[in-house]
């Protein structure tokens, strides 16, 4: 599957690394307090990932919950071969994918049509808060496959191989989805 990159994109900046193995050990032994420590470390990253991948606050909150509950249950099987953050990200991605599969079996009331023009996409791209908002919103309106890939690769910095591995698709599919995401975003963000 994916080769772990040297720089773990899932590690929160500025957090001392040496305390984490201890937290993991203690949590694996059953300490809820230690697990809360891990939770606090990673909740914002996992939430960001889930929020962007699901495009919805409610769903993101559910996914965060499900991710950490499952992480707790499987903690004694975490071997430490990949970083803990990456491990959590993988669980989160799986939860999101399950949710997307579940949703796709139920007819949506308002079908998402990616050819509709985006009412927010007026200003050209500049590095300011307004443009960031526009980009976030545009990303949230991407179709599932394209959005998943864009969020993992372009936002969170996973390589093509890692992204493909986490999503369970071929690398070629991943790249095609990325092209699609960028084309759709480009169209949407232009006047």
């Amino acid at each position: 599957m994916a080769a772990v990159t040297v720089e773990d994109p899932a590690l929160p900046a500025g957090v001392p690394e040496d305390s984490e193995p201890r937290l993991i050990r203690e949590a694996a032994d059953g300490s809820v307090r230690a697990f809360e420590g891990l939770y606090r470390r990673y909740e914002r990253r996992i939430y960001a990932l889930c929020l962007r991948m699901t495009g919805s606050r409610d769903r993101a909150e559910d996914c965060v919950q499900e991710t950490f509950v499952q992480a707790w249950q499987k903690l004694d099987k975490f071997e430490g071969r990949s970083g803990f953050g990456t491990w959590l990200h993988r669980i989160a991605v799986n939860k999101v994918l399950s949710l997307q599969r579940y949703d796709s079996r139920r007819p949506r009331l308002a079908p998402v049509d990616d050819t509709l023009s985006d009412p927010y996409g007026a200003a050209p791209l500049t590095a300011d808060a307004g443009a960031q908002m526009d980009l976030e919103q545009a990303v949230s309106r991407l179709p599932d496959g394209a959005r998943n890939v864009f969020v993992l690769h372009a936002v969170h910095g996973y390589s093509h191989e890692e992204t493909a591995g986490m999503l369970g698709v071929a690398v070629g599919t991943c790249k095609a989805q990325l092209h699609r995401a960028r084309r759709l975003l480009g169209e949407r963000l232009d006047a």
């Binding site: 909740e43 791209l125 980009l135 372009a154």
Partner: peptide
């Protein structure tokens, strides 16, 4: 434009407080 997109995407915050 699309390259700018990738750069902008990388600038998006990787952490969001619920």
């Amino acid at each position: 434009r699309e390259n700018g997109l990738l750069a902008a995407a990388r600038d998006l915050p990787r952490e969001v407080t619920p």
